[in-house]
């Protein structure tokens, strides 16, 4: 790893992260149900700056539902969610994004008819503010902002080793590359908190190692809070500072990876059926 690469991300995204004191995210006793199905049933946790917080649990445990609640896609019926010291429960997704939250999706949600570059550029949406008229005239502020966004996007493309695909339409790219583009789009937002929903799902060993390396680099360079949902236990145990295990929407254990790995409830709920989970993890 050369010197330039070592500082690439922090140079490209100087606004990422936050100086807010205390936890970046505080989730308190949230409950979410769909027509009788309890997806989240009393989950609480905190994530601080620099922390890589992992959420694990078997299929259908409620991990994605927690992400959707935090990012404003779902609204939990009970509990509270505070982000950067402000209540965000019930807030709209774009409003929460504006406060500095970025995420990726378990089932890739890229803009299929846009190129890799444009997908990542869209991540800069909130970092620019020129409107219809200045965009049309393409002078001064708008032009400068677009050029800067392009520069940031190129930095991210370099960081994620996406150069060969810059101008490709994402729909035609291999799954593993699409996952990386999603990460790039989220990074482009210069977030204070980054949610990653199964970033390594469906990837081969090499791709998984690359992804783990990217996540480590993000943590080291940007020092932002991250929440990782992942079925690949090796990735979780290698990367996470703290792990929350849930089952049927309920928290069953919270602690360091070592402690979680040895927790009998977790082993019973999750690690006990490790093989089954690892196999199905990629196909969703």
């Amino acid at each position: 790893m050369d010197v330039v690469r070592d500082r690439l991300l922090s140079e490209v995204l100087p606004e990422a992260g936050t100086s807010v004191e205390g936890p970046v995210l505080e989730v308190k006793d949230i409950h979410l149900s769909f027509a009788g199905v309890k997806a989240i049933d009393g989950v609480s946790f905190q994530v601080s700056n620099h922390e890589l917080f992992a959420i694990i649990g078997p299929n259908g445990a409620g991990k994605t539902s927690i992400f959707n609640s935090i990012s404003g896609v779902y609204e939990p019926q009970e509990g509270s969610i505070r982000f950067m010291g402000k209540d965000i429960l019930g807030g709209k997704p774009d409003h929460i994004a504006r406060m500095g939250m970025a995420r990726t999706f378990q089932n890739i949600e890229l803009f299929a008819n846009l190129t890799v570059l444009d997908n990542i550029m869209l991540g800069r949406h909130l970092r620019m503010n020129h409107g219809v008229l200045s965009s049309m005239v393409w002078l001064g502020k708008a032009r400068k902002a677009e050029m800067h966004a392009r520069e940031v996007a190129e930095g991210i493309i370099q960081f994620l080793e996406l150069e060969p695909f810059r101008k490709s339409y994402v729909a035609m790219l291999p799954y593993g590359v699409q996952k990386r583009v999603e990460l790039g789009r989220a990074l482009a937002m210069s977030p204070s908190l980054l949610l990653l929903d199964e970033p390594a799902a469906g990837m081969n060993t090499e791709e998984t190692e690359d992804m783990a390396r990217f996540i480590m680099d993000i943590k080291r360079e940007l020092g932002i809070g991250m929440i990782l949902v992942e079925h690949d236990m090796r990735v979780v145990m290698d990367l996470a500072d703290t792990v929350l295990a849930i089952d049927f929407g309920k928290p069953i254990a919270l602690g360091t990876p070592d402690v979680i790995q040895r927790n009998p409830d977790v082993i019973r709920a999750y690690l006990g059926q490790d093989h089954a989970v690892v196999e199905t993890g990629g196909t969703e």
Binding site: P93, A97, F111, N113, H130
Partner: peptide, 20 residues
């Protein structure tokens, strides 16, 4: 521009667009 990309994002995936 930024506006055009936002249009396309709304067209392709509105929920993801909102989250971005």
């Amino acid at each position: 521009s930024r506006v055009g990309r936002a249009f396309a994002a709304v067209r392709d995936r509105d929920i993801a667009a909102e989250v971005m």
